[in-house]
Design a protein around this nucleic acid. Structure first.
Length: 205
DNA sequence: CAATAGATCATCT
DNA sequence: GATGATCTATTGC
């Protein structure tokens, strides 16, 4: 079965009507926000995609989290209001998108690790160059920011309003799986990665 | 197929 | 000056 079994334009109307998640969605325990984001829609620049893989990063107790050392210039937004974007450069080359969770002062966040394209697939292809398969367009944290046109310009953006939003989307009923987080050196065994088990767009299948 | 090297730079020590 | 929440091309079996 194709990843997108419906015509692209037919879905853009539904995307526009989809309700933006309110700030209260993010003002909860980081793990609850992470699980809750699975299946929701990330919308930006005429493109929309379902969130299919995330990781939770906690605060000062989590040595793998950027907030572990406390507030710095880069991590400032993590300590602010929930529902904002934390975007940073990794390995000198890729940007990663996180959504800030928990009340102000508690720096939890959720790394968005993979998306399933829904609309704007041609724009994603253009942004991703030589990639052929739809399921490879946004199946990783660095890939999805490229595909969606998200950069450090979006650092601190409020995702409950404006051009970068997260919206409600009908549940697919897919099973949620849990594992350790990927690519970290500290707290390697903490079960804070959540993904839709059988989804073809999850990274590292 | 699996393993690995190289790209490349903001951030923090 | 070292490190890192990655990706891709290339090498080798």
């Amino acid at each position: 079965m194709p990843i997108v079994p419906w015509p692209d334009p037919a879905r853009s109307g539904e995307v526009r009507k989809a309700a933006i998640l309110p700030r209260s969605f993010y003002m909860r325990d980081t793990v609850d926000v992470a699980r809750g984001l699975l299946g929701k829609l990330l919308v930006h620049a005429e493109r929309a995609a379902r969130i299919v893989e995330v990781e939770a990063y906690l605060g000062r107790e989590d040595r793998a989290a950027h907030a572990w050392r406390g507030e710095t210039g880069r991590t400032r937004v993590l300590f602010g209001e929930p529902g904002h974007a934390y975007v940073y450069l990794i390995y000198g080359m890729y940007e990663c998108l996180n959504l800030v969770a928990e009340p102000a002062g508690s720096p939890g966040c959720v790394l968005i690790r993979a998306l399933e394209p829904v609309t704007g697939i041609e724009a994603m292809r253009t942004a991703r160059g030589a990639v052929r398969r739809v399921e490879d367009l946004s199946s990783g944290p660095g890939k999805l920011t490229r595909a969606m046109g998200i950069t450090r310009e979006h650092y601190g953006r409020d995702v409950t309003r404006g051009s970068l939003t997260v919206r409600a989307w009908p549940s697919s009923g897919e099973e949620i799986a849990v594992s350790a987080r990927i690519g970290i050196t500290h707290c390697k065994d903490w079960p804070l990665r959540f993904f839709l088990r059988e989804n073809a767009c999850v990274s590292r299948r």
